[in-house]
Nucleic acid binder design. Sequence first.
RNA 1: GCCGGUGUGGCGGAAUGGCAGACGCACACGACUCAAAAUCGUGCGAGGUUUCCUCAUGUGGGUUCGACUCCCUCCACCGGCACCA
Length: 968
Amino acid sequence: MYNHKEIESKWQKFWADNKLYQAKDDSKKPKFYQLETFPYPSAAGLHVGHPKGYIAEDIHARFTRANGKEVLYTMGWDAFGLPTENYAIKVGKNPKEVAAENIANFKRQVQMFGLSYDWDREINTSSPDYYKWTQWLFIQLYKKGLAYRAKAKINWCPNDQTVLANEQVIDGKCDRCGTVVIQKEMEQWFLKITDYADRLLADLDGLDWPEATKQMQKNWIGRSEGADIDFKVDFESEPNFLILHGYTGLPGKNFIPWLKQEIESKGYKVQAPEMPNSNDPKEEEQVNFVLQNCKIDKNTIIVGHSLGCVVAQKVLMRHNSRIMGLILIASATDKTFPGSIERPFWKNFSWDIDYEKVKELTKFRTVVSDLLEDKKRGEYLKFLKEKLGSGFFETTASKQHFTDLQEPELLKVVLPKIKVFTTRPDTIFGATYMVLAPEHPLVSQITTKEQKNYVVNYVESAAKKTELERTALEKDKTGVFTGAFAINPATKDKIQIWVADYVLSTYGSGAIMAVPAHDERDFEFAKKFELPIVRVVNDEGDRRLPYTREGRIMNSGKYNDVSSSTIRSQMAKDFGTPKVQYRLRDWSISRQRYWGVPIPMINCEKCGIHPVPEKDLPVVLPDDVDFRPKGMPPLASSEQFLNVSCPNCGGPAKREPETLDTFFDSSWYYLRYTDPHNDQEIFEQSKVDHWMPVDLYVIGPEHATLHLLYSRFLTKFLFDAGFVKVAEPFNKLRHLGLIQGADGQKMSKSRGNVVNPDEVVESVGADSMRIYEMFMGPFEDGQPWNTKGLIGARRFLDKVFRTISNEVRNPSQERSLPSVEMGLHKLIKKITSDIPNFKFNTSIAAFMEFLNENKQMSKANWETFLILLAPFAPHITEELWSQLGQTDSIHTQPWPKFDEKMTEDKNVKIVVQVLGRVRATLDFPVGTSQDEVRLKVIVDPNVKRHLEGKQIVKEIFVQDKLINFVVK
RNA sequence: GCCGGUGUGGCGGAAUGGCAGACGCACACGACUCAAAAUCGUGCGAGGUUUCCUCAUGUGGGUUCGACUCCCUCCACCGGCACCA
């Protein structure tokens, strides 16, 4: 029995005092960068499963150093995030305090295992010296247009009054309190990871990653090849258009001539009058002018822009008879509306609009809003939408307030087309109806009066559904007919347009052409609602529908009788535009929580959103804030934090009160390790270029689509921006299997099966724990913890200690036997190939076998044995190394070389088979010929017995391995 | 449903076309001991007519002189995605 406590603490201190594991930036040796997931320091501390990956990497790092590389291997803390914040709320402390305690505990635990980190490079994401650069990175993304604000549905827990990350929603419920999570629409910051979808997919091919992980990323990115195809909405009768320009506008200005021409080119009549006194407009004068000079009938669609919207409604009230529709583009705002900016025409206009009457006189109404404009107009337009019960089309103008010469978005509203994405353009002749997602902007515009109630009810109830309800298994298809029709561009048939929630607003264009004969979902829907089904792909052997595979085209005019796969791309071009669609969505990074990196943006009332100037970074997270969840970002309640002067105009402005998703903090930490204390820049270019890319990353498979995808995205961004020279951060990746509790279940406090490493190290020592965890089984598999097995590992180390201590006391031999020498060379060979392949379990088996067979050998050979074992059990080997009289550290010794000749046996056992069954094994010198082997072997009594009375028809001979007689 | 992975003694596992079960745990017996622990040694898939033979790597089939290993079918479990057009 050796005293592990004494030995382990003695050598840990020695290594730290001598800075044995410092990674030198200017080393002449080739570099090797090893990374491991920096931990989230939770209040619970580590369990024995956590260090498994660290131990494996430490073995690899020690091995790699011994093989002459300069190894960068270090540790840090992913310290921001919700668990710490929640725990702080529970115990009534500040998260900062809690995080510091947790880090101290984690560091103590991690240091017990004898890991060869360069502690001088330790980082902490919640420290201002780190998050200053997190903020800087966000600003660089913003400057390149890759960070943007948009409205999105987020997960909201009504009980905790807080936003939840996707990872915190388990089966549609809040993982803290079990409340069903609802979807809430909110303005959020996003990162445009979708811009990189194609490269994130393509570059996977060159990486040494587990295939399963690459596959998971591929599925997550979800590339589909197909086509965008436009379907025209069919007007019930031929419409004509009347376009009314706004204040200071002219029919020859802005988009109006272009729009007029576009509509006329489709064969419709357009009136675009110049209104009197455009620079000083008066209501009476303009309305009278339109009524006297323009032709308005039941098929007229009035399109108003800005002040023209007010004129349009007044004209309609006076006209007092039904028209087809009203399209209000960026309407001028009512002066009574809060926050409206005073306009000179107010004195000559009134907003006493009878919205009920306007509704009555129009078949449809649509309000168009430009996202570039200030919030006040947006709010007014929403108010207008409510009053008119209209469709709402929110979009981005080419120029603010739709003032560019061409505004293509408007064409989509005025002459509505439904764009669909399909992967099967070859089946377009079978598109017998269309479906819009309930959130599709055209829904209310195209819905007919008769269907209005059904559609409104359906859309409302769809909006109210929780994610859980919408994704429930084997859900029945639901939907309603809008009353409107579209034209199938292939068949020219009028087809029904439906609204159904089986079409997702977030994928493609939120609309589909339904081909029930060749799509299971469309088929199910068509059956239920008795919609037509037309087969357009034939298969001789299979008459069943839906038929979703390839076949011969039928019922498709000139395309008939060719194979669907051949004609697909041609039909994509003939009816639409070929397109690649990705499943990947942009990365939502706003969090309405306290314990995170403040988003470094400032919102000025006058001049909009600006990044915090780089010289003012970091935006420090204030300590004196009430951080309990109240349904709004906690930082918004701190006036002191919030109020700031605008970096552009100097006027009063407000800081962004939200914080960043902690995945953002951890998506670039590996770059910071290369230059962790730089306060001038995120990292020195020469240092990051020297160390990157990461040569080995050990990480749990659960990070496949989150951290690993985000990190690849940010690296690609920094590559494009010229900050790093690598486009991929992690060359080689290995996963670790989780250690389970003794009951075979995942270790967790609630199951009561957690094993604390403090107790393990206390009782048997870190070296035994290291040996045991590596011996449990294949590194990438998970195995249950078995304390008896741990004791087996300790027994092995005791035996090593006993055997070598004995050697120290009574040196047995000057020289080892040749068979012992050969065994040692085989061992060197085995360990040397096992470590880079992560086959630690078989390495340890080989050490055990060697020790079982060889109790006596020379001191030099024991030293070699110890060097081989040192990466696995660094403390005990260092101790024995010193007991053998060495004065320098074993961990600075070069890795032993083996002689290939010494690993080759002189004699081999040859297996003798008769009809493939083993009948004998006999020793032969290496290289014995087939004839010699046969002669010796057939006289073996057992072999002879099996050959007796049989005729040898064939003889298989594998040199030095096997001879097999095939008999009859 | 789709994608990926796994399946070998009582247990963790080894063997990637050539002696299935290395190594360890558990168990049994023996040595040492007054005794226990520790240590050392022996045995340890199932069955049989036991120097040997048969069966056996989730199931059923195939390829091969020979299959845990390669191919096909099905089953079970694990992980991921899930109305993605």
